[in-house]
Design a protein around this nucleic acid. Structure first.
Length: 399
DNA sequence: AATCCACAGGAAGTGCTGGGCG
DNA sequence: CGCCCAGCACTTCCTGTGGATT
């Protein structure tokens, strides 16, 4: 065993950059949430009746990504659960509707939260609801349910479940339920029917984007515990804050920049994190994201993306439309002998690529020449190609 | 003013998977 | 075992539409 390998491990275990890098991870919830005191107080006030066995109002939390909604919600849940007065009679559940994105799965998670196991498929949704209702009532407790990224659920399944949950108190004899919905879609209310809106929107809490100085403050506090003393060059924190502030004040983004910059410095065996490292981190994050997203795409989406790439980059067309793309897509499918999907389906896949942020879709009407989508690649072309080439079938097509 | 292109995107249905329940 | 349920990926069929051209 060489001395050198020893050193590598020493480097990782005893980082000269980090003291505790866990504190920079996106799911870490700090003991204090600076610049969110107002929101925390508002939520606490609304939830307070729980401690006297009364049902609080339901709530809506609005704000863009990385503005602390999730952290604040989890923080408050934790605080109220561990209150002395609560003495175990307050149950909480946190459900991320991005992952639990059907009525069935949300109800299943709620069941899990109160200790009832339900199969992940097989039952009728109404049955899962009934089990939850009875189970909760039997526990004689108050429950706070946080539904994060609730817009995803509603857009997919409608607001039937929300309606049921907000009305559930009329069916509960011994328990109470309070719903907190979180969304980063500010126009989300358009998707809700009036009956849900009136009960869920009883209270609204808005999370404005963090300003650059606020981000700096948040970073500085975290840095003290996460990094060794004095390893950050002057200007590193302000730059991370500024870059993140440009992207709608996303604190998660700022922390990620800082962490990756630190990791780059560490890889290079530097003993300081420089401004240059932050800039590298910025590029690296974007590149990794693109490659990861593309690699995990299903085959047809990759062929589709390849078609867009061919038309726009290799053939230099500045405006690519659905029809053109579909034609090239079909010839690619022919080459590797697989059945092409219909244009209808491809239209949906194009929209999916748009929401993933890989391409940019604009609906235009060109008068006599019909209505179509104008599609543009919105990420670094090299990264995109690299992601595509990870797939053997795709790289064969390019040869 | 009417036409008509090149699609958009809604609705409904199919076939399949993976699991109930009695 | 047979039947039921939810969810997904996809197809078929369809109606809708903004605005340059007739």
């Amino acid at each position: 065993m060489s001395k050198k390998l020893d050193d590598i491990f020493t480097n990782i275990v005893h980082s000269r950059i980090f003291k505790n890098r866990e504190l920079l991870r996106p799911d870490y919830i700090p003991d204090e949430l600076p610049h969110r005191e107002k929101q925390i107080m508002t939520i606490a006030k609304v939830l307070a009746p729980l401690l006297q066995d009364q049902r609080p109002s339901n709530m809506f939390l609005y704000g863009l990504t990385g503005t602390g909604k999730t952290a604040v919600a989890k923080y408050v849940l934790e605080k109220i659960k561990t209150r002395k007065e609560a003495s175990g009679r307050i149950l909480t559940a946190y459900v991320n509707c991005r992952y639990e994105d059907t009525d069935y799965r949300v109800l299943a998670s709620l069941n899990e939260a109160i200790g009832i196991h339900v199969p992940f498929t097989g039952l009728a949704t109404a049955e899962v609801y009934k089990r939850f209702l009875n189970g909760l009532d039997r526990r004689r407790a108050s429950m706070v349910v946080v539904l994060d990224e609730i817009d995803g659920l509603v857009k997919k399944c409608g607001d039937e479940l929300l309606y049921k949950l907000t009305r559930i108190n009329t069916e509960l004899k011994n328990s109470k339920l309070c719903v907190i919905g979180i969304t980063n879609d500010l126009k989300f209310t358009e998707f809700l029917s009036a009956r849900v809106l009136s009960s869920l929107g009883e209270e609204e809490v808005v999370f404005p984007p963090y300003t650059a100085p606020e981000l700096e403050d948040i970073l500085s506090r975290r840095v003290e515990k996460a990094f060794r003393n004095g390893v950050l060059d002057e200007g590193v924190i302000p730059l991370c804050a500024a870059l993140a502030a440009k992207e709608h004040g996303d604190a998660r983004r700022a922390l990620e920049l800082l962490r990756i910059a630190g990791e780059i410095a560490e890889r290079n065996s530097q003993d300081k994190v420089t401004i240059e490292n932050v800039k590298q981190a910025y590029k690296e994050i974007e590149k990794d994201r693109v490659i990861e997203v593309i690699t995990s795409l299903p085959l047809h989406s990759k062929i589709l993306l390849l078609s867009i790439y061919m038309l726009q980059v290799e053939m230099g067309k500045k405006e690519v439309t659905t029809g053109e793309i579909y034609d090239t897509y079909k010839t690619f499918c022919e080459k590797i002998k697989i059945d092409p999907l219909t244009q209808r389906r491809i239209g949906d896949l194009i929209n999916e690529l748009d929401t993933l942020g890989i391409i940019n879709v604009k609906l235009v009407s060109r008068g006599r020449y019909g209505r179509t989508k104008i599609i543009k690649i919105s990420v670094n072309e090299k990264s995109l190609k690299e992601g595509l080439l990870n797939d053997e079938k795709i790289s064969n097509l390019l040869k």
